[in-house]
Design a protein around this nucleic acid. Structure first.
Lengths: 196, 196
DNA sequence: CGAGCGCTTGATTGAGTTCAAAAATCGTGG
DNA sequence: CCACGATTTTTGAACTCAATCAAGCGCTCG
């Protein structure tokens, strides 16, 4: 699984084998079963995860005990709580595995070494953060402006692969609606597509 | 106004006067009156703005003609559409001035030169992007999980200064509620604080 | 000083929630 | 491989929070 990570990094930076070896010397590989919790809300934790295989999610639990999915991370995605990772604050959310997964667990030292050793890693990081910001921006706009149906259609168009791998009730909480409402949205969409 | 910009940059990086001079050679200063539109939704535009004085906002207009504020930018904040700036896509939103403002207008060349000339600029940029991501993360969680009242109280706690400078109806659209609803939330909060 | 904008208030409506229960699907051990 | 319990999805009915529509008030700024 480390091979996949290396492949991913070398696709996005100009790191040589030696440089990668040096930087990645401290990372850990983990196999986690579906359901395994990797990070608990309110706890401080200094790891970020790269998903080599499988699917993770980040979610909060609010005062009423309701879950809200903040982020899905399939293969080749990063997942972690930046506020905990960089600022040592209590985590904003839980992270757990939706499928059996292979992950690379990374500490702050990885970034520190990367930044000093390889300028191209910085460029990659900046690109990644920009892309991420744009996606979050769009999500905020959807949450501010779109109806339940529009949000669902946007999700379907943007993440067709996740649709098959994530239970519907989790998608509902990602969209900011209840599972019951999502079921009704889908019913209504199906009705409109038959009645043509 | 360029002086303020320089001061800000040098507080956050280790750029020397010469380095700053070189990097900032292409930037433009602008004074804009309240109400001036700097960027229009759907248009592609390759500038980002640093607010030296005053207050800008970014907002979308949805299919029903309703405005939704995505971001407020007072002194020493950046504002711009990353998807337009970096990826040359049509902008997701409008940017205009809420107060008479002094701004520094920056093109892509500024970042390109910064990244090559000064490594400390990269570190600053990464830090900035991280902080930004964390804030957007928290906003998403609020929009997913919190009621109108909770969102307003969070806003008051987080941006007490903006409360006095931004019209109430704009704050409402930032929170994802209507101005009428915000008025009622405030009335209810006032009632509860008297009846003690 | 009056026209327009922002804020408030009231009455009504509506999108989505809640609570409850049935139907469908999944997964796991025998 | 099947059966049975658990989980997920669907459906129904009542309800609720916030939106909508409409009108009036009070500033301010032109």
């Amino acid at each position: 699984m480390l091979a996949r990570f290396k492949e991913y990094i070398q696709k996005n930076t100009t790191l040589s084998d030696e440089e990668f070896g040096h930087i990645a010397s401290g990372v850990q590989q983990k196999s986690v079963k579906k359901g395994t919790v990797l990070l608990k809300q309110e706890e401080q934790h200094s790891k970020t995860f790269f998903v080599a295989k499988g699917l993770l999610r980040a979610y909060t639990i609010d005062g009423n005990g309701k879950e809200h999915v903040v982020h899905f991370a399939p293969e080749n995605y990063w997942i972690g709580d930046r506020s905990s990772f960089y600022h040592h604050e209590p985590s904003l959310f839980f992270i757990d595995a939706i499928e059996d997964s292979e992950i690379i667990s990374i500490g702050l030292d990885f970034y520190e070494r990367s930044e000093s050793v390889a300028p191209s890693f910085n460029s990659y990081l900046i690109r990644l953060l920009h892309t991420n910001s744009i996606l979050m921006q769009k999500r905020i706009i959807m949450l501010l402006a779109a109806t339940a149906e529009e949000r669902y259609l946007d999700f379907v168009a943007r993440y067709p692969d996740l649709l098959l791998r994530v239970p519907q009730w989790m998608i509902a909480t990602y969209l900011g609606i209840t599972p019951e409402s999502l079921s009704r949205v889908r019913k209504e969409l199906a009705r409109r597509n038959f009645k043509r």
